[in-house]
Amino acid sequence: MIRVENVWKEYGEQVVLERISLDIADRAFVALVGPSGCGKTTFLKLLLGEEQPSEGRITLDGQPLAPEPTPERGVVFQRYSVFPHLSVLDNVLIGRDFSGSPFRGRLGRVSRRAAADEARALIAEVGLSGNEDKYPAQLSGGMQQRLALAQALIMRPRVLLLDEPFGALDPGIRADIHVLMKRLWNETDLTVVMVTHDMREAFTLATRVIAFERPRNAPADRVRYGASLSSDIAVWPPRVAGLTDPDSTPYTFASPGGDDPAQATGPRRDDPAPPLAGAKP
C-alpha cells in the first residue's frame, strides 16, 4: 500500500501541492486528473522519487520511499521513455542487463539468451512480435508506448507510474492500448498510478479517479496556495484486478441510472473504437 501523509511540495516561494494525504491500495488503478499546472505531474515525480516532498512523507508498505528512482517503481512517460540507440529487444532486455551485470551492464551470451526468451514473451504480450530488431524510430507512437510498457514490466515493479502515457496517440490507437493496459493491470501484480488530462481515459481504465485542484486560484493567491485533492471518486461499477474481465462485475441493476459512468452492456462498451483484427493505422 502506498500511503501519502500530509505532503507539501514547494519550489522556493511557490507552493505547488499542499495537504496531500492519500492511501492507495495494492492493485488499485488510480487516475490523477485536473487542469494543467495543478501539480499532477509533480505528485507523480514525488511517487517516483525524482523529487522529494518539502513536508510530509510517502511510504510504500510502511517503508519510506527511496529518495531516487528504484526498480520497484516502473514508469512510462509520454515521450522519450525508450532508448533510441537500442533495438526493441535490447530495450526490453536492458533491465535484465543492469541487474545481471554490474560492471559491463550487459549479460553474457548464455544468460542473455535465457533473458531474451522472457523478453520476447513480453514483447509478444504487448503486441510487438516481429519488431524485435527494429529501432524505436522505426515504430509508430503507439508501438513505442507498448515497448515502454514491456520495458518497464520486465522489472516486475510493484508500482507502475504513467505520466500521460497515451496523450499523444490517435484515438483509435489509444483505444487499442487501453485494452492492453487493462489486461496488463489485470494479469500482473501491479498498482498503477496514471496522470491524465483525459477524463474519458481516467474513467475507462481506473478503479479510482482523483482530482487535483487549486482551491484558491485568484492571481494573488497562486504563489502561496498550492493544489490539493478536490475529489476522490471510486469508479462504479467497481473494477477488481484479477477477475477474468475487470469490467464484468457481479453487480446488476434494476434500471440503468443516468449517472452510472460505465455500465457493462456489451464487451467494453466504453472503448470508443474496439480493436478490429488486423486494423492498423
Partner: peptide, 26 residues
C-alpha cells in the same frame, strides 16, 4: 531527455551502468 535517465534508474541501472549503456552510446 530527463525521461531517459529516470527510466534507466527505474530499470535498476547504477551511475556506471547508465553511463556505459545509455549515455555513452548516444
Amino acid at each position: 531527455p530527463r525521461e531517459q535517465l529516470i527510466k534507466a534508474q527505474t530499470l535498476g541501472g547504477s551511475s556506471w551502468q547508465i553511463g556505459i549503456r545509455v549515455v555513452l552510446p548516444q
